[in-house]
Structures are given as C-alpha cells and as structure tokens.
Computed example of a mutant assay.
Amino acid sequence: MYEKYSRQCLPSKQYREILGSAICVFNSNNSFIIENILNTDQAKNFKWSILIDKVSGHLLPIIEKTITTKSNNEIAKLFCEIIAERNRIIHSYQATDSTASTDDPDHQILITKHKDGRQEPITEEYLLKFIAKNQKLSTLLYSYRDSLKNDTK
C-alpha cells in the first residue's frame, strides 16, 4: 500500500492504526509508571525530568525500590514482559509475508527476530494482545495509585 506522503510500500491502514495504538498505550503506561514512582517516593529521591529520559528497562530497578516495596512485584513483572514485547515491535523489520493474515494486498507486515534466531511476524493478533497486556498494566497502576491515596487518608 502506498500513501501520498511516502513512496515506500506500507502495511495496510488498519495494521498501521493498531501498530500506532500499541505504541501509544505503551508510552502512556511508561508515563503512568513514572507518575506512580514519584507518588511513592516520599523521600523525593527521583525527579520526573530524570526518569522521563530513562530507557524503559532502566526504570525496573526504580520500580523495585518504590512500587514493589509498597505492593508486590506484579507491576514490575508485567512491565518487564511488556518492555520485551515492545522491543520486538520497535526492533522489527518490514517484509512481505503472503501467509500473514492481513487486509493488505501487498502483504506488508513487520517481522521480529528473537535473540535465539527465531523469527516471528508481528501480526494484528500480536499487537492486540500487546494492547490488552498494557490495559492490564494500566488497571494495576490505577489500583496501585488508588491504594496510595487510601493510605494517606
């Protein structure tokens, strides 16, 4: 599929919409993680301007020092899984895959290569599962934030 703004072949609009949504929900949760770190950090050891510049994986030890100490490791564990999946999406490459389920007549899709050499198409189903995992994380983060508010009452 071609667009006015690019001469390069692109996946279908629907695929790109889901892909964009997947990136947006991850970015939203990354910011929400930072908000919860800052709300937990009573000693004010962390600053938003420093945290926002960190690679997502570098937030994990900070989550352990803050959020996990006030709750459990469920948020940290899920965020770690999501980061790994996001990395597979971001570090993917575009290819033609006529076996992939897509509405694109040119069969353009992203494919990722895992560190063990295994290749995997980034299908719409993969992206929707990623979005659903992010929703679960968002729900956990909201519950965590609400528990902090209740602790201060």
Rank of each mutant, 00 (worst) to 15 (best):
Y5I: 14
Y5C: 05
Q8W: 08
Y15R: 02
I18S: 04
I18A: 04
G20Q: 08
I23T: 07
S31N: 14
I34R: 01
I34T: 03
E35P: 04
N36E: 01
N36A: 00
I37F: 04
N45A: 13
F46W: 14
K47R: 13
I50F: 05
L51I: 05
V55R: 10
G57S: 15
K65Q: 15
T66P: 01
T68P: 00
T68N: 12
T69R: 11
N72G: 03
A76E: 12
F79M: 02
A84T: 08
R86S: 02
N87C: 10
I90Q: 15
S92D: 13
T96K: 08
T96C: 07
D97G: 05
T99A: 11
D104V: 03
D106K: 14
Q108P: 00
K113P: 02
H114L: 14
H114D: 07
R118V: 14
Q119M: 14
P121C: 13
P121W: 06
I122R: 08
I122F: 05
T123A: 08
E124C: 07
E125T: 15
Y126S: 04
F130Y: 09
A132W: 09
K136I: 15
S138M: 07
L141W: 03
Y142D: 05
S143G: 15
R145P: 01
R145I: 04
K149V: 13
